[in-house]
Design a protein around this nucleic acid. Structure first.
Lengths: 160, 160
DNA sequence: TATGTAATGTTATAATATAGCGCTTAAAAA
DNA sequence: TTTTTAAGCGCTATATTATAACATTACATA
């Protein structure tokens, strides 16, 4: 057994805004540490990503930004690329969408469980999955570099 | 230890056309069994997918089809959708591309190792990966339905 | 052959993502 | 502080991936 992240599909804080604020504060700290600029746009995009418990599409982010004034797609993609490089958000390949990373601090690949009913997403930290992949890969001489691990199914609330 | 598929990144037949022909023959049999029509377009698309050892994009398939006469995107996507439903090809979400399935016969999700250098792909059959995912999921009450497991890295030939 | 259904043709458009270039602004150097 | 430099962003255009909608064709079978 290994240490696991506290996992949940839905926010446990009564006030999700607190999650958002925490994420923003942590991001600011990380950017400062790594001498990266946490610009207004980057903050706003990260905030938008965190404001939902489910993956958000780039063009959905764009729509929100456009409420504050004209914005074009490259602006959104640049911000998302930056946030990914900083390990602050993950891209979900099977959905073409983005989620906030629950364990920021270093760029890494996540393992995701995604509810096909309510679209909630949980990022899990499962060393056994990594171990199984590493083992299978090394069996045939393959050197893993990045992973895309996305499992669709039903979350506890929707399967009940 | 479990039974594993014969895995390789590159074809072991001297003549890859044999792989292609085998795949086509098996597909024809499966379609017959399930009373599905293995039309000329479906055959041709499956052939094109199999003719490479790496994932092929829908529009790349389209280009090849257009050499034989005018064809539009929906035709390609329909054929690919059909082949996916039949379990004859897999879609690789992280690449927006398609590969032939090495163990057709029922629709299923594959586990993929993809070389980021030569783009070769291996479909592996690793029950340990499934087990690890199932365990992690059931720990938090999640019921998996579909998986996207794609590992990028270096194949034996490219890492040597 | 007549008939219903599945498959395909065709046009248009939606959805996702990036190239390229010039301006602005923040950070670093002088 | 001023200058220099590079990063970030605005903006236009366009590439890439995918689907909607409806007409037509071809197949299975009654």
């Amino acid at each position: 057994m290994s240490a696991k992240l506290p996992i949940s599909f839905h926010c446990q804080n009564a006030d999700h805004q607190r999650c958002v604020n925490d994420a923003l504060a942590q991001a600011e700290m990380l950017c400062r540490q790594q001498k990266q600029r946490f610009t207004a746009i980057r903050q706003r995009v990260l905030e938008l990503v965190w404001q939902q418990h489910k993956p958000i599409g780039a063009y959905e982010v764009l729509e929100h930004l456009q409420a504050d004034g004209r914005t074009a797609p490259p602006t959104v993609y640049r911000a998302l690329d930056f946030l990914q490089k900083m390990g602050l958000v993950h891209r979900i390949a099977s959905l073409n969408a983005y989620v906030g990373c629950v364990q920021p601090g270093e760029s890494h690949d996540g393992h995701f469980l995604i509810c096909k009913s309510c679209h909630a997403l949980a990022e899990i930290n499962a060393p056994e999955i990594n171990a199984a992949i590493m083992q299978s890969a090394s069996d045939i001489g393959f050197q893993p570099v990045r992973q895309t691990i996305e499992v669709m199914g039903l979350c506890p609330e929707c399967s009940g």
